[in-house]
């Protein structure tokens, strides 16, 4: 029932989704290599069936949830979201998925839970980038529980009505549209409810550059580049940069989550 709010402030300018080719050939998925075209070249090796997600920690019904079992229980809808990479480029992606909240409710979140930790598959024989120490594998990410339960936070299983391509994080990935893309962890195998802020991969690799929150914020620069503007993928070689929107255009929906917080300190 969020179709109208899914676009946020950016809805006003009618979001035009990027093409299938753009979305599936320009990816950051270091498990398959650091080049933007590496995931499209290498991800075919990944086995995505069978697939299950372990949900554990502070939940009433911990266990391994098979992908098919999850999909049978969820209602998939389309969400057209802006996607802003920390590297200052952006796309618009028509995701198919369900709210993370619904999956967490399936497992039953207990009262003491304050954070949600996520983990990507570790299988270096298929994920060839994991043979290099680019990051401390497996990739891990995390959200505060209220961020995880927010209606904009999506578990995506597809793009353009097709199953999630492997280079985009098959079979199930997170999408948090108001945060930099790296928070939207791919090919998830584990979700843990916890009472402590979980470690996150990019924060471990370089804490000065990548904070736990990593909300899109044009006023807080990355130490190596400005975040005030972004290049829209698909505009061609002479495309003009466009201003980056606070919370990637979802300020109205999510700013309340951070009331009273200094966003320069909690970047």
């Amino acid at each position: 029932g969020l179709a109208t709010m899914a676009g946020g402030k950016a809805q006003a300018s009618a979001l035009e989704p990027n093409s299938w080719e753009e979305i599936t050939t320009y990816n950051n998925f270091y498990e398959f290599g650091t080049g933007k075209d590496d995931p499209a070249k290498n991800a075919h090796r990944l086995t995505t069936s069978p697939w299950s997600i372990t949900i554990d920690g502070l939940v009433d019904r911990p266990g391994d949830y098979a992908f098919d079992e999850i999909m049978a229980a969820m209602t998939v809808e389309e969400r057209i979201y802006r996607f802003r990479c920390v590297e200052a480029w952006s796309m618009v992606v028509p995701w198919n998925g369900f709210e993370l909240k619904d999956l967490l409710d399936l497992a039953g979140v207990q009262d003491g839970a304050k954070y949600v930790a996520f983990e990507t598959l570790y299988r270096p024989e298929e994920m060839v980038g994991q043979k290099f120490g680019t990051l401390d594998w497996p990739y891990v990410e995390g959200l505060r529980l209220d961020e995880a339960m927010h209606p904009l936070t999506l578990m995506a299983s597809g793009i353009y009505g097709k199953p999630m391509p492997k280079q985009n994080g098959a079979p199930l990935r997170l999408v948090v549209p108001w945060k930099y893309g790296f928070k939207s962890i791919k090919s998830i195998v584990k979700i843990t409810l916890t009472d402590k802020e979980p470690p996150t991969s990019w924060n471990k690799a370089n804490g000065r550059e990548y904070g736990f929150y990593s909300n899109v914020n044009p006023e807080v620069d990355h130490p190596r580049w400005s975040q005030a503007t972004e290049r829209q993928i698909g505009g061609g070689i002479f495309a003009k940069r466009i201003p980056t929107l606070m919370f990637n255009g979802y300020e109205e929906e999510v700013a309340g989550l951070y009331d009273g917080m200094d966003l320069k300190e909690f970047y």
């Binding site: 753009e22 050939t25 320009y26 933007k36 480029w89 290049r231 698909g234 061609g236 070689i237």
Partner: peptide, 18 residues
């Protein structure tokens, strides 16, 4: 490279590729 970029042979982010 400019020719490749204009004819779409430098991928979807040709400026960065160049």
């Amino acid at each position: 490279l400019l020719w490749l970029a204009l004819s779409g042979d430098l991928g979807v982010d040709p400026a960065k590729a160049m």
